[in-house]
């Protein structure tokens, strides 16, 4: 253990004295920023796509939109996140002449990617809501979109909350690839500490511990939200 103590001391030295903690905090901030913003963008995109996919398809426009959405979901589910990041950062953005930082690109790609997954989660959520709910909304003269927003989607979200929590956890963990486009996340921070001390064991173990704590915290948050939503549904 003397060996481990030595390694630990080296880690602490760099973490505290050589501003390692600043890097870690910055990495943590970026990791959370990318995951949270990605999730929000993903939920927005996913809800829109899921709604398009449940619209009755008598007319031409819904059919075209549906095809576009199917293509989008297929594309983003069919390629790895890293590939999407690389393509956006090194191919698409230079082609379009747009300048974005690594973090901004990551948020965009995480949002687009999770949007594809969330659309399927949301679709199953919407389909789990009794069709009579939508019918009742339409019967009092509300439009399709108002009925969806006011009645169906809130109930769908409640049904899929645990799965959305899962998606958020997956996003948090997947942020470990954003260093490919130069965004400084937790991995970058701990690699910095590791390469400065020529010692990777402790930094990577600490990094793993931080991820676990983050994920446990999110699981707790989802459980609390779930309980409070259930409470509003069954009083007495």
């Amino acid at each position: 253990m003397g060996n481990f103590g030595n390694k630990w001391n080296k880690f602490v030295e760099i973490f505290l004295l050589q501003n390692g903690y600043v890097k870690v905090l910055e990495g943590l901030q970026n990791t959370l920023l990318i995951a949270v913003c990605g999730l929000i963008v993903g939920i927005l995109i996913g809800t829109v796509i899921a709604t398009v996919r449940v619209i009755p398809k008598y007319k031409r426009l819904p059919r075209i939109l549906n095809a576009v959405c199917s293509f989008y979901v297929g594309l983003f589910r069919g390629t790895p996140m890293v590939v999407q990041l690389l393509v956006f950062y090194y191919v698409l953005l230079p082609l379009l002449g747009v300048k974005m930082t690594g973090v901004q690109v990551s948020i965009m790609v995480f949002g687009l990617n999770s949007g594809a997954y969330i659309s399927e989660i949301m679709r199953s959520g919407i389909q789990s809501v009794d069709p009579g709910q939508l019918e009742a909304g339409r019967a009092v003269g509300l439009s399709f979109s108002t009925s969806m927003l006011e009645i169906v989607i809130p109930q769908a979200v409640k049904n899929i909350l645990p799965t959305l929590g899962n998606e958020f956890i997956a996003l948090i963990k997947e942020t470990s690839v954003v260093s490919f486009v130069g965004a400084a996340d937790l991995y970058v921070a701990f690699s910095f500490i590791g390469s400065n001390s020529y010692e990777f064991m402790v930094p990577y173990l600490v990094m793993a511990a931080i991820y676990i704590v983050l994920v446990l915290f999110i699981s707790l948050l989802v459980a609390v939200m779930e309980r409070s939503l259930k409470k509003s549904d069954r009083r007495n």
């Binding site: 009794d130 009579g132 709910q133 019918e135 009742a136 909304g137 339409r138 019967a139 009092v140 003269g141 509300l142 006011e150 009645i151 809130p154 109930q155 409640k158 549904d233």
Partner: peptide, 27 residues
């Protein structure tokens, strides 16, 4: 036109995510 035609369903179809009074007020 549906606003002038009420409809009552076999399975009630009250909005589950709204309270009784919100159900009546929504439309």
């Amino acid at each position: 036109h549906r606003r002038h035609m009420g409809m009552v369903f076999q399975h009630f179809n009250l909005f589950n995510n709204k309270t009784v009074i919100e159900n009546i007020m929504l439309a």
